[in-house]
């Protein structure tokens, strides 16, 4: 069952930017694309654990600030030829409010 939690206003996340949501299982990065879609990923690059929330967002991807791994926001997959995957969490926008559903197992790992 999806358990949606309200985490804030869409306008509080910059376009082509990201904000962090703190959880006991680690930070989750919530991204906003140019067209106001939102995506949520564990804030850890599969490469060396870099904080993806601090990266440059382009189209539906983010570049990790540590070593330029590029991660797909929708799937958490590293863009080929790089390999690796970051856990994703369901996120949505309704009436300008961002909702997140934390997948516990993923966040805790």
């Amino acid at each position: 069952m999806t358990n949606w939690i309200e985490i804030g206003a869409l306008d509080d996340i910059p376009r082509l930017g990201s904000r962090v949501v703190r959880t006991p299982g680690g930070n989750i990065a919530v991204f906003r694309t140019e067209s106001d879609e939102v995506f949520a990923l564990d804030d850890r690059c599969p490469h060396k654990g870099g904080p993806l929330s601090q990266g440059i967002v382009h189209n539906k991807r983010v570049t990790c600030p540590l070593h330029n791994f590029v991660i797909e926001l929708a799937s958490g997959q590293a863009v080929a030829p790089d390999e690796g995957c970051t856990h994703t969490h369901p996120a949505k926008v309704e009436n300008g409010i961002v909702w997140l559903s934390v997948r516990q197992a993923a966040a805790v790992s």
Partner: peptide, 12 residues
């Protein structure tokens, strides 16, 4: 200001 603060803190 937003840059330096988390968007939310969740206690799951």
């Amino acid at each position: 200001r937003n840059e330096f603060a988390p968007l939310a803190e969740l206690e799951l």
